[in-house]
Simulated scan of single mutants.
Amino acid sequence: MEGVYNFKVGMTCSGCSGAVNRILSKAEGVKSFDISLETQKVSVVAPDLTQDQVFEIVKKAGKPVEVL
């Protein structure tokens, strides 16, 4: 599916996942997202954004991020 991006994000607590949640909630162009603290994965649906743009948004949470 185009516009779906998956990242591994270094989250160790609910505060970490909350930070990612706050950033993605406010981001323009992000349609929906799913955050799994257990697997440290974040899936973002953003059909109008590139993977690099979404990566930069997720990075603003201040956690280590890598593309899956």
Rank of each mutant, 00 (worst) to 15 (best):
F55W: 13
I35S: 03
I23W: 04
S14F: 08
V30W: 02
G62M: 02
F7T: 06
R22M: 15
M11T: 01
K8Y: 09
Q40S: 02
G62Y: 02
Q53W: 15
K41Q: 05
E2I: 09
G18F: 00
T50Q: 12
L37G: 03
G15Y: 03
N21I: 01
A27E: 04
K41L: 04
V44E: 03
V67K: 08
Q40Y: 03
V45E: 10
M11C: 00
V30T: 04
L37E: 00
E38Y: 15
F7C: 06
F33K: 11
S14M: 05
I23E: 05
P47T: 08
A27G: 03
V9W: 07
K60M: 07
V4T: 15
C16S: 03
C13K: 07
D52Y: 15
S25F: 12
R22D: 10
D52H: 15
C13V: 00
A46Y: 05
D48I: 06
Q51K: 13
E2C: 09
G10P: 06
I57D: 03
M11V: 00
G10K: 09
Q51V: 12
D48N: 08
D52A: 15
K41F: 12
E28N: 09
S17F: 02
A19D: 02
V20D: 02
I57K: 11
S32D: 08
K31R: 07
L24N: 10
T39Y: 13
I57Q: 07
K26M: 02
C16I: 01
I57C: 05
A61G: 10
R22Y: 14
P47Q: 06
L68D: 14
S25V: 08
I57H: 09
E38M: 12
G3I: 13
K63W: 00
N6D: 15
K59L: 01
I57G: 10
E56D: 14
Q40C: 01
V65K: 09
R22W: 14
G62T: 03
K60N: 05
N21H: 09
S25R: 14
F7S: 07
K60F: 01
F33V: 06
T12H: 08
D52E: 15
C16R: 06
G3D: 13
L37I: 02
D48C: 02
A27R: 05
G3V: 13
G62I: 00
D34K: 15
V20F: 09
V20M: 09
V42G: 07
K59S: 04
F33M: 08
E66N: 13
K41Y: 11
K31H: 05
T50I: 11
K60V: 03
S25C: 11
K26I: 01
G15D: 00
Q53R: 15
S25W: 13
L68T: 13
I23A: 02
F55S: 08
S32A: 07
G15W: 00
E38L: 15
V42Q: 04
L49D: 12
K31Y: 00
E56R: 15
L37W: 10
I35V: 08
G62P: 05
E28I: 05
